[in-house]
């Protein structure tokens, strides 16, 4: 079983990202469990979303404390929240950022960056100040971790995303191609 934690700000689509990914995993025959940080949120506040996936039914039903990997949709969260709390050794930290991976100092973990903002803005997903980066980041996730095929992500986007399906799929593909370690 692997566990994933996604860090974002309310409104960026962290929860939807976990749903799209869960559905993609389901399409590949995995058992899944995805949920948001339980509580009351508001736009802009730090939020988290979680995903568990396994080849057999998932019986554990508590919070995710030791994720295998994390995704950070907004790099400003790194100074606000302990994003690596509980992260398993040599887990991936996939960050939405225009910087190189080497610019982030996370000892004992592997870092990958993707400028999902740039991709989102270029495709007109969200606005310049509030780009919707959740689909792009999943493309990066697929490439980096190899835990899910890009085909499944693209299919899941078709099923789960209500508008701008083609553009969102393109975002997935572009991030897949551009993510850097």
């Amino acid at each position: 079983m692997f566990e994933l934690r996604i860090h974002g700000r309310g409104g960026q689509g962290a929860v939807v990202a976990s749903k799209i990914l869960a559905n993609a995993m389901f399409l590949e025959g995995k058992y899944v469990q995805s949920f948001p940080m339980f509580g009351v949120e508001r736009r802009g506040a730090p939020v988290q979303a979680f995903l568990r996936a396994d080849d057999k039914p998932i019986r554990i039903r508590c919070q995710v404390y030791t994720p295998n990997h994390i995704i950070v949709l907004d790099p400003t969260l790194i100074n606000v929240v302990d994003v690596t709390k509980g992260l398993k050794k040599s887990g991936w930290i996939i960050i939405n950022s225009s910087h190189d991976a080497s610019d982030f100092k996370f000892k004992g973990y592997k870092v990958a960056t993707i400028d999902a903002n740039k991709i989102a803005v270029s495709l007109g997903l969200g606005s310049k100040t509030a780009p919707i980066v959740n689909t792009a980041i999943l493309g990066a996730f697929s490439k980096i971790t190899g835990l899910i095929s890009i085909e499944s992500i693209l299919k899941s986007v078709s099923e789960e995303v209500p508008i701008k399906v083609q553009l969102n799929k393109q975002a997935v593909q572009e991030a897949y191609d551009q993510v850097r370690q």
Binding site: K19, F26, Y31, V32, Q33, S34, F38, R61, C62
Partner: peptide, 9 residues
């Protein structure tokens, strides 16, 4: 939340 807001198959 543990069931109401958790997505599974």
């Amino acid at each position: 939340f543990v069931l109401s807001h958790t997505s599974e198959i």
